[in-house]
Design a protein around this nucleic acid. Structure first.
Lengths: 257, 257
DNA sequence: GCCATATCCTTATGCCATAAAGAGTTGGCA
DNA sequence: TGCCAACTCTTTATGGCATAAGGATATGGC
């Protein structure tokens, strides 16, 4: 359920609260902020697919339709959730030990954020929400990248690639967790069952896909069972680390200070 | 609507067709292949969100329920669509002018594929479908990467990063197209309307987000109006090119031959 | 000719977003 | 003081979704 953004009026996104209130009618029992925060909590717990106007309303002791008093429709609510959630990201990074260290910390933080709020990954990036916190995120990253001394044209490509790698890793980790908890089958169990099935159903596997097998075979991700971290998640984090290293080396090669 | 995969029996994925048929009952009017191919056509045209058992059945002159004779449920149908669609990718790349050129062609092909079939991007990667064509794709890429001379452990990270960048770019392009055609508003119009709104609603923008503005300001993506390519798409393709270059430089830095 | 088996349909359940209309609440003005 | 207009929230309805259950019909093999 990719959700398309950038349709709303942006009035709610950028609203300045504070004007008192001297209007007829019953006092509002809810508020946009409360609804958005509640919807974020729901999405964090049950995922974007299970986020409905009803589930949010219910948690607030209201019907689904009550929310439409505050928010024009679900799409706009998701835009508000998206921008509000981004406020949870750190906004300043110490550059005293260089852009490389700062960028690594930034990538870790953003990845953790996405894993904590995986529904954020489902909000379309094509026509961005353009809320204040989205610009804050960009501003934070731009400040780090400025330290490379590279010109904006080059940096824009770097921004895309960084987000791609971070989001890709977070997506894998989040989806693995989601699948585990939704099906009750751990990564390890799932993988073993699938391997067995595969050998049974495609006995000529090694002949048909020799290079794929070679790629996957050697050096299984260290079976660090004490860590308790699930299989796929461990593999994803290792891939994230090395992908990021690759990218940072590429930035260096592009002439960064 | 991210769709979770890897639940089905894999029997349909790996089935060997050919056994004749000498069973009582009416002759099947449809087939799994026909349904899958039709569903792919529907998804290509209207997107994953509008893909329903009804829309597929209708195109075949049947009701939604008729499909359940051939396919156990929608999730399994999507798995089959996914693997079948991957068969459209090229499977061999000439390595005579080096891994770098081959990898660039591969990335272009895969990006084009995703843009042509954007719904493929919504199939979860965490627990892969494990169909024959998915392994063929991996095998093809592994063959190219083997030419770098790097060991499998290193290459696995490279595989992830490559897919992340390709998928990220394709996602942006596909979502931009989808948004354009769904809303009837071109990227350019949308962006101009949004800029105007933003200036009106956040007049202190330049003070609040100076680095973001700096990053975006200089060197607007060349206004190559003759190309006819939409704004966001052009930007995404430029970002893809430079992101890929970054990655290839990183691979070189990792010691590739 | 009949039965077991298949295909395909109708109907029903319980989700979803949201349109429309109505019930109840309250600030401010007459 | 009393009423109105504005506002909150609910009920109900529409048309979508996946899919469970059950029934009508077709057909190969006995």
């Amino acid at each position: 359920m990719t959700v398309y953004a950038g349709q709303g009026s942006m009035a709610l996104l950028w609203r300045a609260q504070g004007e008192p209130r001297a209007k007829p009618g019953p006092k509002p029992g809810l508020s946009v902020d409360l609804i958005v925060e509640t919807a974020i909590a729901v999405a964090d717990e049950v995922g974007m697919a299970a986020l409905s106007m009803r589930t949010v309303g219910e948690r607030l002791g209201r019907t689904a339709m009550a929310l439409y008093t505050y928010v024009p429709n679900k799409g706009e609510l998701v835009d508000l959730m998206y921008d509000r959630a981004l406020a949870r990201l750190p906004t300043g990074y110490d550059l005293s030990d260089g852009w490389r260290a700062a960028l690594t910390r930034w990538a870790d933080d953003v990845c953790d954020f996405y894993v904590r709020h995986p529904w954020v990954l489902q909000v379309s990036q094509a026509r961005p929400v353009l809320g204040p916190n989205e610009f804050t995120v960009l501003d934070t990253l731009a400040r780090i990248l400025a330290a490379t001394g590279l010109p904006p044209q080059v940096l824009r490509g770097i921004v895309s690639a960084l987000f791609d790698v971070v989001r890709g890793a977070a997506r894998t980790i989040a989806e693995a967790r989601q699948a585990s908890s939704a099906t009750g089958v751990s990564d390890e169990e799932w993988w073993q069952a699938r391997s067995a099935l595969l050998q049974e159903i495609a006995p000529d596997f090694a002949d048909r896909f020799p290079m794929a097998l070679w790629l996957e075979s050697a050096g299984e991700p260290s079976r660090d069972l004490e860590s308790g971290e699930p299989y796929l998640e461990r593999a994803a984090r290792q891939a994230f680390r090395s992908g990021l290293t690759l990218l940072l080396d590429g930035i260096k090669a592009a002439g960064a200070a």
